[in-house]
Nucleic acid binder design. Structure first.
Lengths: 182, 182, 182, 182
DNA sequence: CATGAATGAGTTTTCATTCAT
DNA sequence: CATGAATGAAAACTCATTCAT
C-alpha cells in the first residue's frame, strides 16, 4: 500500500471515529469523506460498505484502548489506580465501541476479521486482568463485571458535556470502590 | 377534540415514545404511524413535523416522571428512598427525554409551548426538592446536582439490556450515597 | 335546498373564485373550505370533486360577466364605450375563466351542465353583439375577434398589481381602437 | 466542472425552463429530471431545492433575452423596430421570468447570486435604452414604462395558443405606437 | 346535514452505493 | 488510484377524497 493511500485510510478511520460518536453511526458517508479530506469514491475503495468502516473504526478504537490500559498499568502503582486512570482517559477521548460494548454481538466480523479478533482479545485480557487484580487487592467491589463497566463507558461517551460526564464517572468510580463500611 | 381522535393522538405519542428510545429519534414517521395503528396522514395532521412530535413525547414523559416521583415521595418514608425508587422506575420504563436531560436546550419549545413549560417546571421542582431533602437528611452526597443525575439517567435508558442497566444504576446509587467513612 | 345550505354553497363558490385566481386552480380544497367558513366535508357534499367546483365558479363568473356587460350596454351610449367599461370592470374584479377563455375546451361540462351551457351562450351573444356593433360604428378594429379579447383578459387578471394591470389594459384598448390614420 | 456534468446541468435548466412555462413552476421535479434525461438525484445535486433551480432558469432566461435584444438592436435600423422584433421573439420562444417580470421581488436571490444580479442589470440596461431611444425617436408612446411591457410579456407567454398570442401582441404594439393623430 | 378526522397516493428530498472520467 | 457525478430506493411531507361522529 502506497504511503498516500495509507494516509488516506488513516484519515478516513479517524474522521469516522469522531463522526460516529458525535453524529451517530448513521453519519452520512459523504460527510465522513469530506471530514477526511477525500472523495466518497476513495472511502468506498477502502471500505466496501458502512459495516466495513465500522469494523475498521472498532479495530482502531480497540488499539487505542489497549494502548491506554497498557500504559496505565505500567505507570500506575496499583491495578485500581490503573483502572481509574484508564476509564478517565477513555471518557476523555470519547472512544466509542459502536456496537455492543464488548463487541460480542459482532459475531460475523469476529469470525471473518482476524485483526479485530486479536486486538479485541488482547484488550479484553488486559482489562479483565486489571479488574481482577483490583478486586483481589480489595479496592474494587467483587460484584462488578467487565460488562457493566464497558456498557457504562459506552453510554457515557455519548454525552457531549465533558464537565458533567467527568463528574458522573467520578460518582460511578466511588460506587465501584470498596468502602471501609461495606 | 373527538374521542377517537384523542385516542389516536395518545397512541401516536405512546408509539413515538417507545420508538424514539428503541430506534432513536430518527425512527421513520411511517413506522411510528404503523405502530400507532394509523396512517401517516393522521400523524402529520396532529404533529406538523418531527419536532412537534418530539415535543409532545417530551411533555408525556415529563407527566409520567412527575407521576412517578410524586408517588415515590408519597409512599416512601425518606427522600432518599423515594429518590432511589424513582430512579429505578425511570430506568425500568426507559422514559427518555430525547433532548438534553433537563430540556434546557429546548428554548424555542419552552417559549412557545406553555404545557411543556409547566409540566417541566413541576417535575424539576419535585425532583430538586427530593434531592435537597435527601442531602439534608445526610443520605445523598452534597456534591451532586440534578444535571448529573438527569444526564446519567438519560444515557442509561438508551441501553437495551435491562439486566446490566439495573446493576449499573445500583452501582451509581452506591456512588451517590453518603457512606459512613466519607 | 335550505337557506343555510344555499348560503354555504354561495360562500364556497365565492371563496373558490378568489383563491383560484390568487393561488391558482391548484389551491388546496381545505384552504377554500376554510376561506368559505365551512368544513371540507361540506364542500365535498356540494361539489363531488375539484372539477365540479371549477364548473360552478365558471357559471358564477359567466353570470357576473353577463351582468356587467348588460349593464354597460344599458348605461353607455355607444357599443365601444360599453365594451371598454366592461373590460375595465372585468379586470378590476379579476374574474377568471379558469379554463380556456371562451370555455370551449370544456366540452364535457358543456354537454352535461345545461346551466353552464346557457349562461355561457348568453354571455357570448352579448359580447359578440357588442364587439360587432363597435366595429360597425367604426370604433373597434375589424380584425379583432372575441378570442383575442377574452384570452387577453384572462391573462391580464392573473396579475396582482392592479396599477400596472390598468395601464396595460389602457394600452391594449388604444391598440384595438380605430385610429384616424389607420 | 466535468464536461458531462456541465451538459447535464444545461439539460436540466433547459428542461425546467420549458416545463415551468408549460406546466407551471410547480412542475414535479421528477418530471423535470426525466425530461432532462437524468435521475432526480442528479437534479438535486446541482440544485438543492426548487428555488435554486428557478434562479438558474431565470439567469438562463436573462441571458437569452439579453442576446435577443442585443441582436435586434444590431440588426434593425431603428430602436422601435428592434423593440418590436425583440418582443415578438420573446413571445415566440416563451421565455418566462417566473417571478415578477423585472425580478425585483427576488431580493434574496439578487443579494446572494451575483451572476443573476449582473445579467439582470445588463438586460435591464439594454431594454431601458431601447425603450428610451424609441420614445425619443417619436415611435413609442412616452407614457409607457419597462414595467408595463415586461409584465405584459410575462402574462402573454403563459398562453399556449401561439396564433392568438401573436395577434394579441400585435394589437398591443399598435397600442404602444405613437399614431399620427395622437 | 356539517364537521373535521383518517387515509394513502403522489411529491419532495436525502443519501448509500456505483461508475464514468 | 482518486474523484465526484449519477442513480434510485427510502424517508419526509402534502393534500384530494372518503367516512365516522
Amino acid at each position: 500500500m502506497r504511503a498516500d493511500a495509507l494516509r488516506n485510510r488513516d484519515q478516513i478511520v479517524a474522521a469516522a471515529r469522531v463522526l460516529f460518536i458525535t453524529h451517530g453511526v448513521e453519519a452520512p458517508m459523504e460527510e465522513i469523506a469530506k471530514a477526511a479530506g477525500v472523495g466518497v469514491g476513495t472511502l468506498y475503495r477502502r471500505f466496501p460498505d458502512r459495516g466495513a468502516l465500522m469494523d475498521a473504526v472498532t479495530v482502531d478504537v480497540f488499539h487505542r484502548l489497549t494502548g491506554m490500559i497498557a500504559t496505565a498499568r505500567d505507570e500506575e502503582s496499583s491495578a485500581w489506580d490503573a483502572l481509574r486512570r484508564f476509564l478517565r482517559e477513555w471518557a476523555e477521548f470519547r472512544l466509542g465501541l459502536l456496537q455492543d460494548p464488548l463487541c460480542s454481538g459482532m459475531s460475523q466480523a469476529l469470525r471473518t476479521n482476524s485483526e479485530l479478533r486479536e486486538i479485541r482479545t488482547r484488550w479484553l485480557e488486559l482489562f479483565e486482568r486489571t479488574v481482577q487484580e483490583a478486586q483481589q487487592a480489595g479496592d474494587l467491589r467483587r460484584d462488578v463485571g467487565l460488562m457493566e463497566i464497558a456498557t457504562f463507558m459506552n453510554l457515557l461517551i455519548r454525552d457531549e458535556q465533558t464537565e458533567t460526564t467527568g463528574r458522573i464517572l467520578a460518582f460511578m468510580l466511588d460506587g465501584l470502590a470498596v468502602t471501609p463500611g461495606t
